[in-house]
């Protein structure tokens, strides 16, 4: 699909069986921006319909997870938290991690979950996973409010918490890299699941494993140099560590590691978008 000048006539749309790999139609995504926002609104409204607590559920989840982590990893296993109060340490990791995990799992079934709609009408398919990223931002926002409340509390009572205020501007970039990674992995899986359904079983389990391979419940400083090297290959590690470095003053900050994560994100995202774009044209024949 490309806008092209035919020799004699001008066509708005030309469809051929094999268009080039690089024919991602960003223009039409922009044209459908209203649909993007309406899908976000749909997710937002439909989640709270017929619930008593509404958005409050978004708070309960990280609170309980933090309590469990504090008991198991803090008290029972006595894993170091770099001198940071355990509650604050765990919730800072959980908040950012949850955004990544949600983006990944909810975009990973894009094709299968939307087969009914995709089979009936054409619109740029990328709109759907993009709307998931934006919908999840709202949830992230609510959880960040919780995090900030706890953070401010400990900022006042604990001397161990000493934010690196000058690096606060990095925060939006951390979110962007997280979103990009979540989207990249998510749509890659969704493209592959149209053919190999096995991957759907792997997603939930894989995300859980990946959490333990990221410095969420332990600080990277607690690891041996060799382990640290392997862990930093995980693009999420530097994001979590930078977040902790900026807000808590603990953790490991390296510009190089952050750039690595960023480039990793760009590569996985562009590869996934290309694959996604290719799959979207014929997936109706195999779903």
């Amino acid at each position: 699909m490309e806008n092209a000048n035919n020799k004699i006539e001008k066509w708005d749309l030309i469809i051929k069986p094999q268009s080039s790999w690089l024919s991602v139609d960003l223009v039409s995504i922009w044209k459908y921006r209203d649909l993007l926002m309406l899908l976000v609104k749909r997710d937002f409204v439909s989640v709270y319909k017929q619930t008593l607590l509404g958005p409050f559920w978004f708070i309960i989840q990280p609170v309980i997870t933090t309590v469990i982590f504090t008991v198991i990893f803090g008290n029972l296993a006595s894993i170091s938290t770099d001198g940071i109060p355990p509650t604050l340490f765990y919730i800072s990791g959980i908040t950012l991690w949850a955004y990544f995990a949600d983006c990944l799992t909810k975009t990973s079934n894009t094709f299968i979950a939307n087969a009914a709609v995709f089979g009936k009408v054409y619109f740029p398919r990328l709109i759907v996973p993009l709307s998931v990223l934006i919908s999840n931002l709202w949830k992230l926002g609510i959880q960040l409010v919780l995090f900030i409340a706890i953070w401010v509390y400990y900022l006042n009572i604990s001397k161990a918490v000493s934010p690196n205020w000058t690096l606060l501007w990095l925060f939006p970039f951390l979110i962007i890299i997280m979103a990009g990674l979540g989207l990249g992995f998510g749509i890659l899986i969704s493209s592959l699941t149209t053919k190999y359904r096995d991957l759907t079983f792997l997603v939930g389990f894989g995300v859980q494993l990946l959490m333990y391979a990221s410095p969420i419940v332990y600080p990277i400083s607690a690891l041996s140099p060799k382990m640290k090297f392997w862990l930093m290959l995980n693009p999420i590690s530097s994001i979590i560590e930078t977040f902790k470095y900026v807000f808590l003053g603990s953790g490991y900050f390296s510009g190089g590691a952050l750039i690595y994560s960023f480039i990793f994100m760009l590569i996985i995202l562009s590869t996934s978008v290309l694959i996604f774009n290719r799959v979207e044209k014929t997936f109706m024949d195999s779903v």
């Binding site: 066509w11 749309l13 469809i15 069986p17």
Partner: peptide, 13 residues
């Protein structure tokens, strides 16, 4: 446009 052709072209104005 919910699926692609295997052969041929399809042009629209």
């Amino acid at each position: 446009r919910t699926t692609s052709p295997t052969f041929g072209t399809y042009k629209v104005k």
